[in-house]
């Protein structure tokens, strides 16, 4: 039992999950190879993804007794000030899980819309493949982006930090299974409520219509509620990766490339302080001279080229102002951008 409350010692799911992940990745490779299921694997891509996962776990172990212990101690200290403290039980666990998933939605959304967060999260999106190994392509220094502050409201609502950590680990465990092309669409009620492989494929898409959508962790209802939901459209197959895909399998470069990009941009000569800060905190794709495009600009650009697509899911907010020059332009970004 925990010494602050009667919180039981909850298992660390991540430490039990590794063998399950490895077994399922091998199974998916074999099924894809035998063409029993849809999907694609490439040796170096998958090796890099798994190596990134290994680096993520290793970083967690290395910083467990320093950074993460410090953060946890801070939450325990904060927990003392919670006016109500929920005892561990089924109902409190369910409430904690749902609220933590809502927290995840916003943290994830900010990870896509603030470049500082994106520098960390882009690592997960940097593969052009989408398979179970992609789920393991995770950053190494996530604590640095500071998004752990998003946990503070849950602690002050009276959820023990250990319970929140447990809920978060179940959330991440669930998300492993939705990184696959092997599963098509699930029954309607599941697709309506839960984040599914179909919804998450859209999230990993670099097609203009799919950019910045489906941020959910477990419950897709948050996207439906906050207007970021886009349904997978089989007539527009998902192209995975990022707007400006990376050309390296080197795990260190994969882990740090956007931080290097931020540094180079923010230290360009002749910029104002505001411009330097914008290179760090504005949406990815922002540039002081307009030479790059953000997701919103890429979508608007796409609609300008394809007026018939205006108002369609993922492109709803954009109206064509210029007649299309051609009708066979692919559903891809048209300009180089930083993401």
């Amino acid at each position: 039992m925990n010494n602050l409350t009667d919180m039981p010692d909850l298992p660390d799911i991540a430490s039990y999950a590794a063998p399950i992940y490895v077994a399922l990745i091998i199974a998916e490779i074999l099924f894809v190879h035998l063409r029993r299921v849809k999907g694609s694997y490439e040796t170096r891509d998958a090796s890099t993804s798994i190596a990134m996962g290994l680096g993520n776990v290793t970083s967690g172990i290395i910083f467990a007794t320093t950074v993460y212990a410090g953060i946890f101690a801070f939450f325990l200290w904060l927990y003392r000030f919670a006016p109500v403290k929920w005892e561990f039980g089924i109902l409190s666990m369910v409430a904690c899980f749902v609220l933590d998933d809502l927290r995840y939605y916003w943290v994830h959304r900010f990870s896509h819309t603030i470049r500082w967060g994106w520098a960390d999260h882009v690592i997960h999106h940097s593969s052009q493949h989408f398979n179970l190994s992609t789920a393991l392509r995770q950053p190494w220094f996530s604590f640095a982006k500071g998004y752990f502050v998003s946990v503070i409201p849950l602690v002050l609502l009276g959820f023990h930090p250990a319970m929140i950590a447990f809920a978060g680990s179940i959330n991440l465990f669930y998300q492993f299974f939705i990184h696959t092309e092997a599963v098509g669409k699930m029954p309607k009620w599941v697709e309506a409520v839960m984040n599914t492989p179909s919804h998450h494929r859209v999230h990993h898409g670099r097609n203009a219509r799919y950019l910045d959508s489906n941020y959910a962790g477990v419950f897709i209802v948050w996207d439906r509620l906050f207007g970021t939901f886009v349904e997978e459209d089989e007539t527009h197959p998902v192209r995975y990766g990022i707007v400006k895909n990376i050309g390296t399998y080197n795990p260190l470069r994969v882990a740090t490339h956007e931080y290097v990009g931020i540094w180079r941009d923010a230290t360009l000569p002749g910029l104002s302080l505001q411009q330097r800060l914008a290179y760090v905190f504005a949406p990815p794709g922002w540039s002081h001279d307009g030479s790059r495009k953000s997701s919103a600009e890429i979508k608007a650009d796409f609609v300008r080229r394809n007026p018939d697509e205006a108002g369609k899911p993922g492109l709803g907010g954009f109206i064509s102002t210029v007649p299309a020059a051609a009708s066979d332009i692919p559903d891809l970004p048209s300009e180089p951008a930083s993401r």
Binding site: I25, I26, I29, T43, A46, S47, I50, A51
Partner: peptide, 8 residues
């Protein structure tokens, strides 16, 4: 990782 890479 090596074994998975070899398999692929």
């Amino acid at each position: 990782i090596g074994l998975i890479a070899l398999l692929m």
